[in-house]
Amino acid sequence: MSKVFVFIEGNGTDLKKGSLELLNAAQNSGREVIVGAIGSDARELAKKAAHSGAKMAYVCEAASLKHYNSEGFAEVVHSMIQQSGADLVLASSSSMTRDLFPRVAARYNSGLANDCTTLTLTATDVKARRPLFAGKCTAEVEFVNSPLKFILMRPNQLPLGQSNTTLVAEVKEIPAPTVSGKVQCKELVKGGSTKVDLTEANIIVSGGRGLQNADNFKLLEDLATSLGATVGASRAVADAGWVSHSMQVGQTGKTVAPSLYIAVGISGAIQHLAGMSASKVIVAVNKDPEAPIFQKATYGIVGDLFEVVPKLTEEFNKALQR
């Protein structure tokens, strides 16, 4: 039976949505699913991955890998993949996997396709496409001369499956790596946000210069709360210091693809569109009917955001009973 190795990540002891999406694709492919997890919750994550079809799990809970560091993680993941015997490696695209897997792929003299947005996986074949030129086109990835195939998928692109809590996987512990310590994570400084990160969020509410000042972002936070959404922003307001740069969506900010993206007081400059035009449904609220954002939007509301946004919050609260 052909094999697929899925590197899984969690938020605490819950699997990230992107990992669950890949587990579902892997399980449905008819391949034997093998997972790898690193960190103090690795065993718990492996247990949950088993519920989604993983037959075998490699875990490393070494204290030295509490925080990410490319040297130790590369060492461990390399050995997990080797032991698994899989020639296809999947992971959800994240700060960690994007840093780590190009290095691991290179160690295997193999290619890596980052940030893929479609994936078709069967027992014998794999097809993936990825966006290029800031989403202005896409292309299919063909592996040539590549002993292993590495694919990082953008989250929120694939369906989730059912889980079965009676399933278990065989678990194998990978020992702590021997490392030189040439790169070490000294500290993890927590961010302000307790919400799901922009890159993983299913719903995003983004604000632009139309909000006029930092205080008015409160309006968007209320709207976001009514929807269980994460708040994003245009570069104009991140540069103005109204919000943190980590909230910027766009070509020089984050690339996002949620199910629902609500752009409030954002004109829709090409560099902003580059970061969000892959969203499934786009709603634009803008007082200017000619704003370019309406060309990308699914639904458009021409109006004063200070009037429209509170009404939206009210209606979402009613409809979703929050």
Binding site: H67, L188, K190, T194
Partner: peptide
């Protein structure tokens, strides 16, 4: 993620 920073 989440605006957190790793210091290496």
């Amino acid at each position: 993620e989440g605006g957190a920073r790793e210091i290496h």
